[in-house]
């Protein structure tokens, strides 16, 4: 049971975070782009307040994989840099923490554009 439990909580918490977004899309006509922006900003705020940390301890990848986790990462990176370098950390911390995700998405995106062609909708 103990082996399954982290997966179960990752599944449930990750799934619930998606359900909240789905309700927002269906009920408020918020566009997906706005949902993504809201989730990252929410992640920064919850991360900054120290709340998101508990969710990650509890749900692991269920909390880090959704875009709120990306926001949490930015907040965490900035806090650490501010502690180390003072005010300069405000500018350096966020992008440093998000670097791997952004760089990977951009580079893989470019590779996809080089290798493939878009197809008609099915």
């Amino acid at each position: 049971m103990d082996i399954i439990l982290p997966y179960l909580w990752a599944f449930i918490i990750g799934g619930l975070l998606c359900v909240i977004a789905q309700i927002l899309i269906d009920k408020t006509k918020l566009t997906p782009a706005r949902i993504l922006v809201s989730y990252v900003v929410a992640g920064v705020i919850l991360g900054g307040c120290g709340i998101y940390k508990y969710l990650i301890d509890f749900a692991g990848a269920g909390a880090t994989t959704p875009l709120t986790g990306f926001g949490y990462l930015i907040a965490k990176g900035i806090r650490e840099e501010v502690e180390k370098n003072g005010l300069m950390g405000v500018l350096t911390g966020g992008i440093t923490a998000a670097a791997a995700g952004i760089a990977a998405a951009l580079i893989f995106g470019l590779l996809v554009a080089i290798c493939f062609r878009d197809k008609r909708k099915q």
Binding site: C18, V19, I35, L36, P66, L106, G109, A113
Partner: peptide, 15 residues
């Protein structure tokens, strides 16, 4: 939202 909200949605938006 099941594929949009995880980091997969961000990657799909870029690619």
């Amino acid at each position: 939202a099941g594929t949009l909200v995880p980091i997969t949605g961000f990657s799909n938006a870029v690619a």
